[in-house]
Structures are given as structure tokens and as C-alpha cells.
Design a protein around this nucleic acid. Structure first.
Length: 907
RNA sequence: GCCCGGGUGGUGGAACGGUAGACACGGGGGACUUAAAAUCCCCUGCGCGAGCGUGCGGGUUCGAGUCCCGCCCCGGGCACCA
């Protein structure tokens, strides 16, 4: 239970007063102002869940709020908005359970979030609040979808263009309008595809590749099944999504995830003739230098050539294998095969080796994936582990074509040699290093028309439709002939209709398909009944924040070019492969089409760490009756003296006295270890919560939530208060503030003040909030000396120092800072006051602490004048008794003098 | 397996190549109080000590937590992607 700490000052009243003041005065209202430099600080906007905020959310929001407030005081025009990513499954599932419309669910939840955020004093411009579920918002989500649908990728120019500019080949034109339409549809950035998708039967929804891992981790089954779905051609942007990471100030970790996800690899395409058939079988390989080692070919079982080339004798076997593969889940397929258990079937057909002319058998096997490269490989068992395993299983020949550069012998029959080395048994490239051999081989293939250099990517196109209710409707309908036709822009938005039942059918028929009146259009066409995934709304919300009220455009050119890009974006790392990739993709499409002015949306990205919550485990880790691990929640335990170790405490279960061990985990409702900010704000105050979350450690680090730490910063704020009201004992007369000395105080006080200004400024810039707070603590500890103010000016608080301290404190503890600012006699908020400037003259002392070392070991420290020459410093150092003693009878080989730092005698 | 981070007191964490451990929590002692709470002050890396100390072993340097090489461990990402 949260015990209320003693109250040094009335934080509740102060917080209420200033939150009302800010709201009434629209203190944080942001408007485009070309005269002033802008700064755009963005939080990853939350999904407004019914559980409300927990203290984990608050960490990132506090960081962005500190920067927002700081930048305002530095003269920047700051855009700092907040909104709701409110489409998605949880609201819909809640609706299914309770019958409450998802829109109501979201309205309640976002109202609660808004209240909680305001209570923490965050300086959002609430006039810009938006929800992705608002028709005025998803109007433009639909509009962007139509931009994608209405564009193709010009590979020559490496950019998207309107589909009307797509050159139509004469033979297509000759074939008539239907052929032209099909030609265009095949090239649009949004297209319909029948390919197998990731279907989650329990959730009754398809998943994007990026989402599969997470759902599987959550225990859901995901199977592949063919469905006709909208897909976005993100793969066209693979190279740019990769290359443009270069200029971004993002955490290395996130850059790595994105690079991995795009998965670029360089290699070659090689054409193999198929014996007895026209046309070629093209493979992709990253090791064209091993071409002479290809002893067989493998096609993915789904490869279109399989049916064509399989011989009569092999038909039955091949068909059985293809069926078997289709029925097994991706996971089943992979699990066995990765262990080295390779399966496959021989097609009976043979390929002609493009260099040796040898006939090599063509197999099918599920270790080759249709979706990557060309869906076919040349198998080089000598130098690829997977091919090696397969060759051994099927008794296929293994030959060596690469040898280790150091001449070591390798047993190619026992294991593949996958390293680089020197080409052997390869007439065209014998003796060449792997790198050179790759180049030579590609040149050779090009010269003979048998291949070409090629880059492939792991990134797949983005599956974009969902069989759910609570999402954006697609702005498209199908004519009776089955042609997809866009809803005219002037008829947007396509509103989400009311339905009786939110559940899709078992086979994936979306709930909107039962909204018959809605889906049936007067002209006989039928609306698309899938909806967009939750990512759609979050792909561009940062753009809408620039101009949220615009009723005629998604954003004005003026607002976009002024505010964008986002200067600082703070959020969780869990969006590294999804949201951040998707929105970069959309942004680039919008850039190509001239709707935005820069190719990347987020200049700087920071991932805040997790705040961990406590649960308690019995020492024997026993399970409860239902077989689950037994855990105790913070409310069930308390700290008591440990009888085994006097003087220290341990955690015990309150009722039984059983000792338990503390365990820190990510906060989650199901674990029961969530800390609600409302509770801690009520007892310690918003400023304490903000300060504590920042003081826990670097923003990127995860850290455990500990009430003792919260009490620590709470005490600090109490000391700040007592700096201004030293006698405050709650009585009325004590409410008079401390008498202030004029000016900035004694030299010592001035040095401390300007040191504090310099440190807090530098550390805030570096987002090193924990150390900035520590500088504030040092100031409060040292600014006023103990003693009699009448006799000792050091015991007075100088007005100048008090004033500037308020400003330094303001980004961190804005309520208290505003209150003290007004105590100092200011009528208006300090939110737009200029940030204090450190006076260089007070940063440099006229003396400094000179460290004297002998042989690099610390021996003494003495005060030395800053102005002293090197020789004078050495003389001073030699004068130190302990040093002189050590130098008796020895002349140092060398004397190192670092002015302002140290003297080191090297013997 | 490959690729990124990271290993500093009892704890969270500080340290432009220049006094390792700022600041805070926890712990110990004291002041105030009839008493307690709250508050304030002092001590608190290890070692009785010379000294020793930033995961381990080398190296560069007058000087290394920081730079280089080789390991170990922890966290994360990717992985049948040819």
C-alpha cells in the first residue's frame, strides 16, 4: 500500500492551480510562425486501453515534456501534440463481450488517458488532439490509400509516379482497355493478391509478416492459407528504406532491426536451361563463385515450373510432396528442416549446367521458399549446410569448388565448407579469392548471356487488409465485372457502418460483408468489406498533427513544410520493425508524389526503457492448485527484519510470514505488477513522479519502480520549497517567503549558480536528465550556507540565483517552479521566459585543484592559481612535502603538466 | 551460428584519456522531541594496514572504466532468406 508521505507543501493545490492556468491561457498553443525556429517533439501516441496509463508510459512522455518546455524557453516554437491510435482489436473484443460500441469504449478510455496526462502537467497543445477513428481523420487515411492505389513505382527514376504516367507498351494498348487496366493494376503500389497469407484462426484475422512473431509468442496459431487481399508494394522501396537510414540519428539497435528486416543481399541470377523444355530456370545465389559445385537444383514446391517439368514417372511422388507441404504449417515445415531433416521429391527433369553442360537433377523441397529470390536454387552441397544436409539425405553428389586460403584440407563429404577461400575445380575462376571469383563469374555469365548481378531483399510486400470491423474502410468498390474502382475523393470519407455482430465468420468473411445496405452501391458495385490494419492510422498521424483542423486537405503545404520533420521522436522499441518501417514507407510515397517536403519523417529517435514492476515468488517456486507458478503481489507482502541477518530486512508474505524473493518484470495487467500514476500523483505529486522517472537512470535503460526512490526526489522538492519558505511549519505566519539578498550573491554562490546553469543546460540538451537533476540537487544543497543571515551573506538566498534556479527547474518540476516564480513576484507563467545563460566568467575559477602524481599515482592535491605557468605548477608540486620526499635523490625522467589539472613526476 | 548493445559499491547510477564511485536509495551514528513521525547533520567501495579495486588476460600511454587485441558472461536482434 502506498503510504502518504509527509507534505512539506501543498502539491495538490499548486498542481491544480497551474494546470488550470495553463489551460485557461493556452500557454502551450502552437501556431506556424515563420519568424521563429520550430522544434517538433513527438511521443508515439498510445492505444487508449481501458486500463489507463501506467507509470511506464509516463517515462517517455516526461522526457518529451522536459524537452518541449526547455526548447520553448530556448526560443523555439514547439509543436508537442498528443492523440489516440484508437482503431484495433482490443476495443472490438471489448465490444463483443459487452455490447458497447467500440467508439464508446475508445471515447471513455481516451477521456481517462487525457485526464491522466493533464494531471502530470504535460505541455501538450490539446487543441491538436486527434483520434485515428475520427471520420475527419480517417478521411485522409483513405485518401492516402488512394494515393498508393493511384501510383506505380518508376524503377528507372527510383520513385513513385501517378499511375496515369505509366507507359503502356503498344501490344498492351492493342489488346484493349481491359488489358490496359490489368497492366496498370499489376503495377499499382496497392494491389490485390491471391497469395497465401498468415491467417490466425483464433483471432479470425490475417497478419502482416511483421506481426506474426508477436502473435505466435502470445500463443496464437498462425497458418498459411490463400486469400484475396490488399497488399502494399513496400518492396519497391527496400533500397531507399535501407539507404536513407544512413542520415538518421536513431539508436543503433533500431537501425539494425530495420536493416535486418529489409535484408539486402548481393549476388547473381543465373539461368539454367531445362533439358527438353524451352525457357530457363533462373536461380538467385550469393555465391556465384560456387557455380561449378552445383550438383542439383531445387524448386520451392509451389514453384509454377514444377507442374510443367515433372516427368510422368515422378508425377505421383511430386504431387504427394506438394500436397503434404501445403497442408503443413510454416512452423512445422521449418522446425524439422532446420534440425537438418530435409525432405523433398525428384521431378524427373534435369537442368543443363550453364558452364559444364552437365545434366543435373531438379528436385523440389520445402527448404526452398517461393517468396525469396526466384523460388529456386542451384544446390551447392559442398559449400552450403542446407544443401549438404539435403544431398546427404538424398545421396546426391558433393563436390568441392572452394578451398581454404591457408591450404588446410577439408573433408567436404563430412561437412560443407561455407567460408571464403580460393576457387578450385572451377575452370573460369580457379585460384581466385572468393570475392574476386564472384566478380569474375558474374562478368563471365553476363558475357555469355547466362546471368547477371542481382540484389534481393527479405522484405516482402505489406499485407494490408484485415477481416475486422474496427478499422478504416477501404475507399474502393468492385463493379459487377470484378474491377476495383476507387470512391471519388469528394465522396470521402467512406464511413464505417453500424453492424449487429463484430465477429468475422470462421472462414474470414469480414463483419462489414453483413452490412448489406452499406456495401451495396446504387450502381450495382459492392464495397470492399475488409478494413485497414491498425498501422494505417499511425503511419501518418505526425503529419496530421501539423494541421489537425484542416477540413479540405490532409495538411497544408505551409504547415507541413514548417513543422516537419519530427525533431525528436520518443517511444518503445517494439515498433522498430512495424510502425517505423511502415510510416517511413508511406512518407516516401508521399514525398515522391510531392505531398511532403522531406524523404524521412523522424530525424532523431529515442527508445525509452521499460519501468519494471515487482512481484514476489516463494523460495521453493511452488505452483498453485491450477499448476501455475505461485506469485504474490506487492499488496500481499511487506518488509520485515531478517532474523538470520540482524540489521537487514527481507520480504515476507504478510499473512503467513513466509519469506519471498522479489522479481522485476515488465509491467502488465496480467502480472498484477502495474503501478497506476493516479495513485502516486495523488500522494507524492506530479512533479515528484516526473522527477523520479527521470532520476531513475538514463532514459534508454529499464529500471525497477521503487517507492523509496520516489520518496527521495519528493524530499528534494521539499528542500526546494524550504529554500524559499524556510520556516514553513504550516502556520500562517510561516507562509512569508525567505528574505532575499539582492543580486546573484557572493562569488561562491555565483560560481555555483553559473556552474549549475551550464550543467543543467548541457545535460538537458544531451537528454541526460538524471544528471541534470543531480546538478539541481547540488545547487539546492549548497546555495545557502548554514549560519546567521544577518551576519553572513553566504547564508542569504540571492534573488538573482533564486530566479534563475526556478527557470532551470521548470522543465523538470513545472508546477513547483511556476509557483515559486510567482512567489518571486512574477505575474505570468515562466513557460516562455528565456532560459538562463551561464556566465563564462563564473565558470572558471581563479584557483583550481592541482593533482600531484608521482609515477601516475595520486599523492597530493593543492590549490593552484589558474594563471600559473607550467613551471610555476611544477614548483608548487615539488613543494608538497609528501612529493618532495619521494623526489629526494631522483631526478624525474619526465614531468607531465596538464594545465588546470595535474602535475605528474615520472621517475 | 551471425549481427548489435552492455558488464563500475548492497542498489539505481556518475565520470572531455587526467583524484573512479557525482547525485540518490539502502545501511550506520548523532541532533531535535516526553516519545514517535517528519526534518537536519555526519559516516558509508574493499582491506586492521602497506595497499587493492571498473567481468578476465594481454597491449598502447607519463597516466586506461574510457583506446587496441584475445577471451568470458548478460541483454537484444536476425536466422532454411540460398
Amino acid at each position: 500500500m502506498l503510504a502518504s508521505p509527509p507534505m512539506v507543501y501543498d502539491h495538490q493545490a499548486i498542481e491544480r492551480r497551474w494546470q488550470e492556468y495553463w489551460e485557461r491561457n493556452e500557454t502551450f498553443r502552437a501556431e506556424v510562425d515563420p519568424e521563429r525556429p520550430k522544434f517538433y517533439v513527438l511521443d508515439m501516441f498510445p492505444y487508449p486501453s481501458g486500463d489507463g496509463l501506467h507509470v511506464g508510459h509516463v517515462e517517455g512522455y516526461t522526457a518529451t515534456d522536459i524537452i518541449s518546455r526547455y526548447k520553448r524557453m530556448r526560443g523555439f516554437n514547439v509543436l508537442h501534440p498528443m492523440g489516440w491510435d484508437a482503431f484495433g482489436l482490443p476495443a472490438e473484443r471489448h465490444a463483443m463481450k459487452t455490447g458497447v460500441h467500440p467508439a464508446r469504449v475508445i471515447e471513455n478510455a481516451s477521456g481517462n488517458f487525457r485526464r491522466q496526462l493533464k494531471r502530470l502537467g504535460f505541455s501538450y497543445d490539446w487543441r491538436r488532439e486527434l483520434s485515428t477513428t475520427d471520420p475527419g481523420y480517417y478521411h485522409w487515411t483513405q485518401w492516402i490509400f488512394l494515393q498508393l492505389w493511384g501510383s506505380y513505382y518508376d524503377r528507372q527514376a527510383q520513385r513513385a509516379r501517378p499511375i496515369a504516367q505509366l507507359p503502356i507498351p503498344p501490344e498492351v494498348t492493342a489488346a484493349g482497355p481491359a488489358a490496359i487496366a490489368r497492366y496498370r493494376d499489376d503495377r499499382r503500389l496497392a494491389y490485390l493478391d491471391d497469395a497465401p497469407v498468415n491467417w490466425c484462426p483464433a483471432l479470425r484475422v490475417v497478419l502482416a509478416n511483421e506481426e506474426v512473431a508477436e502473435k505466435v509468442e502470445d500463443g496464437y496459431e498462425v497458418v498459411r492459407r490463400p486469400m484475396r487481399q490488399w497488399v502494399l508494394r513496400i518492396t519497391e522501396y527496400a533500397e531507399r528504406l535501407l539507404a536513407d537510414l544512413e542520415g538518421l540519428d536513431w539508436p543503433p539497435h533500431v537501425l539494425e532491426i530495420q536493416r535486418n528486416w529489409v535484408g539486402r543481399s548481393e549476388g547473381a541470377e543465373i539461368d539454367f536451361a531445362v533439358d527438353g523444355h524451352a525457357g530457363a530456370l533462373t536461380v538467385f545465389t550469393t555465391r556465384p563463385d560456387t557455380l561449378y559445385g552445383a550438383t542439383y537444383m531445387v524448386l520451392a514446391p509451389e514453384h509454377p515450373l514444377v507442374a510443367e517439368i515433372t516427368t510422368a514417372a515422378q508425377q505421383a511422388e511430386v504431387r504427394a510432396y506438394v500436397d503434404r507441404t501445403a497442408r503443413r504449417s510454416e512452423r512445422e515445415r521449418q522446425a524439422e528442416s532446420i534440425e537438418g531433416k530435409k525432405t523433398g521429391a525428384f521431378t524427373g527433369a534435369h537442368a543443363i549446367h550453364p558452364l559444364s553442360g552437365a545434366k543435373i537433377p531438379i528436385w523440389i523441397a520445402d527448404y526452398v521458399l517461393l517468396g525469396y529470390g526466384t523460388g529456386a536454387i542451384m544446390a551447392v552441397p559442398g559449400h552450403d549446410e542446407r544443401d549438404h544436409a539435403f544431398a546427404r539425405a538424398m545421396a546426391l553428389p558433393i563436390v568441392q569448388v572452394v578451398a581454404p586460403a591457408d591450404g588446410a584440407a577439408v573433408d567436404i563429404a563430412a561437412a560443407a565448407f561455407v567460408g571464403e577461400g580460393v576457387a578450385v575445380n572451377s575452370p573460369v575462376i580457379d585460384g581466385q579469392s572468393t570475392a574476386a571469383a564472384k566478380r569474375t563469374m558474374i562478368d563471365h555469365l553476363v558475357a555469355h548471356g547466362r546471368g547477371r548481378a542481382r540484389v534481393t531483399y527479405k522484405l516482402r510486400d505489406w499485407l494490408f487488409s484485415r477481416q475486422r470491423y474496427w478499422g478504416e474502410p477501404f475507399p474502393l468498390a468492385y463493379t459487377p465485372a470484378g474491377e476495383a474502382v476507387p470512391v471519388p475523393e469528394d465522396q470521402l470519407p467512406v464511413l464505417l457502418p453500424e453492424v449487429a455482430d463484430y465477429d468475422p465468420s470462421e472462414d474470414g468473411e469480414p463483419p462489414l460483408s453483413r452490412a448489406t445496405a452499406w456495401k451495396q452501391l446504387p450502381d450495382g458495385s459492392v464495397r470492399e468489406t475488409n478494413t485497414m490494419p491498425q498501422w494505417a492510422g499511425s503511419c501518418w498521424y505526425y503529419l496530421r498533427f501539423c494541421d489537425p483542423g484542416n477540413g479540405t486537405l490532409p495538411w497544408s503545404k505551409q504547415a507541413e513544410s514548417y513543422w516537419m520533420p519530427v525533431d525528436l521522436y520518443v517511444g518503445g522499441v517494439e515498433h522498430a520493425a512495424t510502425h517505423l518501417l511502415y510510416s517511413r514507407f508511406w512518407h516516401k510515397v508521399l514525398f515522391d508524389l510531392g505531398h511532403v517536403s522531406e524523404p524521412e519523417p523522424f530525424r532523431r529517435l529515442v527508445n525509452q526503457g521499460m519501468i519494471l514492476g515487482a512481484t514476489f515468488l516463494p523460495l521453493d517456486r511452488r505452483k498453485d492448485d491450477s499448476g501455475k507458478k505461485l506469485v504474490f503481489l506487492p499488496a500481499q507482502v511487506e518488509e520485515r527484519d531478517d532474523p538470520d541477518r540482524p540489521g537487514s530486512k527481507r520480504w515476507v508474505v504478510r499473512e503467513t510470514g513466509e519469506p519471498v524473493e522479489i522479481q522485476w518484470d515488465k509491467m502488465s495487467k496480467s502480472r498484477g505488477n502495474v503501478v497506476n500514476p493516479d495513485e502516486v500523483v495523488a500522494s507524492y505529486g506530479a512533479d515528484s513522479v516526473r522527477l523520479y522517472e527521470m532520476f531513475m537512470g538514463p532514459l534508454e535503460h529499464s529500471a525497477p519502480w521503487q517507492t523509496e526512490g520516489l520518496a527521495g526526489v519528493h524530499r528534494f522538492l521539499g528542500r526546494v520549497w524550504k529554500l524559499f519558505f524556510p520556516a514553513d511549519d504550516g502556520s500562517a505566519e510561516a507562509k512569508t517567503p525567505r528574505a532575499l539578498a539582492a543580486g546573484e550573491g557572493t562569488p561562491r554562490q555565483r560560481r555555483l549558480l553559473h556552474r549549475t546553469i551550464a550543467d543543467v543546460t548541457d545535460r538537458t540538451e544531451r537528454l541526460s536528465f538524471n544528471t541534470a537533476i543531480s546538478a539541481l540537487m547540488v545547487f539546492v544543497r549548497d546555495i545557502v550556507a548554514a549560519g546567521d543571515p544577518a551576519a553572513d551573506p553566504e547564508a542569504m538566498l540571492p534573488r538573482g540565483a533564486a530566479t534563475q534556479f526556478c527557470l532551470l527547474l521548470a522543465p523538470y518540476a513545472p508546477h513547483l517552479a511556476e509557483e515559486l516564480w510567482s512567489v518571486l513576484g512574477h505575474a505570468a507563467s515562466l513557460a516562455h521566459e528565456p532560459w538562463p545563460a551561464a556566465d563564462e566568467a563564473w565558470l572558471v575559477d581563479d584557483t583550481f585543484t592541482l593533482v600531484v602524481q608521482v609515477d601516475g599515482k595520486w599523492r597530493a592535491e593543492i590549490a593552484a592559481p589558474k594563471s600559473a605557468s607550467k613551471d610555476e605548477l611544477v614548483a608548487l608540486a615539488r613543494g608538497v612535502e609528501d612529493v618532495a620526499k619521494r623526489l629526494v635523490g631522483v631526478e624525474p625522467r619526465r614531468v607531465v603538466v596538464v594545465p588546470g589539472r595535474l602535475v605528474n613526476f615520472v621517475l
